[in-house]
């Protein structure tokens, strides 16, 4: 056990207990310092509403998404089959993910290899909790009237057509949601997908995240909302290049929700 009292599946099993939902943290959420804060906020939300959840801890492994998008189907399937064995060993039925890439891979690509789970992204859970009245945006920071623009992650938006859940979460804060010109199904990529995050971009006249951040800044936001740790990295880099760190924050929907609820 640890400060946040986050149980692992192994610990629960040893006690003869089970979790209702597995929180799939993902590699960025586990190792990237910025993304770790989002991970902890998701845990706080899960605690707050009393969902019985667990993580895999050190038994978690990369889903294989970056390998697959880079064309290494061998490595992807090795990862997938290994993970499926672990997930099935714990009889996991439902998974919540912090990262749209993990979400997409677990939800759409694992079934082909025999892994069948109900997979939701954390923004979908947040929307559901708001709809059920379990999250009220009370007792914390007020976002009322603040200008927020939301950046659609490709693998949540176009990849899986989840456009409303993250927006509902923001609307419940009474914030002023301003859309970028390219949003929803026309949303512009942050530049990280397809394993681009792990390599230098090909030569061109501009970086993709610069193009995107310029568009985001046109909406004159106080906050740029993200829902993906990779987009988070790209957008924050863009903000740094534009030297706007003092004026604009890049926050995940989970962080905004946690703050609004005083978690």
């Amino acid at each position: 056990m640890n400060e946040l009292n986050i149980p692992t599946m192994a610990e629960l099993m040893a006690k003869g207990e089970t979790a209702d939902i597995l929180f799939w943290v993902g590699c960025a959420g586990s190792f990237d310092e910025r993304a770790q804060r989002i991970t902890r906020d998701i845990c706080k939300i899960l605690h707050h509403v009393g969902i019985k959840y667990a993580i895999l801890g050190t038994e978690e492994n990369c889903t294989g998404d970056p390998a697959k998008r880079a064309g290494n189907e061998f490595l992807f399937q090795m990862q997938a089959l290994m993970n499926i064995q672990i997930l099935d060993g714990y009889e996991v039925k439902k998974i919540i993910t912090a990262c749209p890439h993990c979400f997409n891979t677990l939800k759409n690509e694992y079934p082909d290899l025999g892994g069948h789970y109900e997979v939701i992204h954390h923004t979908q859970l947040i929307q559901q909790l708001i709809d059920e009245g379990k999250l009220k945006a009370e007792g914390g920071e007020s976002f009322k009237g603040r200008r927020i623009t939301y950046h659609d992650p490709c693998y949540l938006g176009r990849g899986n057509e989840v456009y409303e859940a993250p927006r509902k979460a923001l609307e419940s804060l009474d914030a002023q949601l301003v859309e970028m010109k390219r949003c929803r199904s026309n949303g512009l990529c942050c530049g990280a997908g397809g394993a681009q995050l792990f390599k230098e971009p090909e030569k061109g006249k501009k970086d993709i995240n610069t193009e995107r951040i310029e568009e985001a800044l046109e909406t004159q936001p106080e906050i740029i909302a993200a829902a993906c740790p990779f987009c988070m990295t790209m957008l924050r880099d863009g903000i740094k290049i534009k030297e706007k760190e003092q004026d604009v924050q890049v926050l995940d929907i989970a962080e905004i929700t946690a703050r609004a609820n005083g978690l």
Binding site: G29, F31, T58, P66, F198
Partner: peptide, 28 residues
Amino acid sequence: SLHAMFSNVENNGAPWKYAQADRANWVD
């Protein structure tokens, strides 16, 4: 750099060069 990513995924279970054993350190 993608080859490096592949070998990280294969050996450490993450696309970056972090030890698998450190995966849950964020909880603290």
